[in-house]
Amino acid sequence: MPVDWIWGLAGGLMIGCAAALYLLGNGRIMGASGILGGLIDGSARGFVSERIAFLIGVIAMPAVLFALGDTVDTHATGSVPLLIVGGVLVGLGTRVGNGCTSGHGVCGISRLSLRGMVATGFYIGAGVLAVVALRGVL
């Protein structure tokens, strides 16, 4: 539906502005997996409270929009094995590869980083493979 693209573009611009604010204001790259992962594996070194403040914003803002009556649904699978396998792979892969859709994708590609572009090519390719493979099985 065309309206989905418009919301996508509007939301995308907001994501880009958020990343620009974090870069120009705090001098840091806005990568969701890096900000969260650094807290989880203890590699955060300083910047701990800054990361926590960022994560509070990420979780709280959609909660407010949801509470204000925005009807949303993640439509996520209810299959526990798939959720566990998917979650572990996302957590492991983003931290081994040092970035996810926001870090490698948004922040990396926008500065023409070779690593960001190569990583994005590989994770989109692997994502296509997973979707096609699971559609054949399920």
Binding site: S33, L36, L82, V88, L89, R95, G97, G125, A130, L134
Partner: peptide
């Protein structure tokens, strides 16, 4: 390897960290 593992998980559920 990290990007491939991430992509496989992303395509399994449809969620990334953000």
């Amino acid at each position: 390897v990290g990007a491939i593992l991430f992509g496989l998980g992303w395509g399994t559920v449809g969620l990334c960290p953000g």
